[in-house]
Amino acid sequence: MEHPNTLKKHIFGFLWSLILTFAALLITLRTNLPLGWKVTIIVTLAFFQLIIQLLYFMHLTEGDSKWIQVVNIVYGLFVAIVTVAGSIWIMLYNTMTH
């Protein structure tokens, strides 16, 4: 399980997380894209960062129960996305209730 390229993998993960962080900052503050585009892009970048952390730093896909771990986290994320997107939809966009 010990890969000789582990250090490289960590440095690679760290550099990517820095690049994605600054890309999100620049897109938000230094471009004139419409708000909807900015939101879509930076949320996508955040999810890329999540994947980097899970795979490069957290060893999500190792151990005998790796598939249980993966399904558990994916299911957690599914519930999270439904909760957040559903709340925003109902609270901010469902004008029928006002």
């Binding site: 558990n72 986290i73 909760t83 559903g86």
Partner: peptide, 16 residues
Amino acid sequence: WAFLGAEIVLFATLFA
């Protein structure tokens, strides 16, 4: 990992 899955959902409610 099960705990972290639950934490994701906990934070999701706060984000929402």
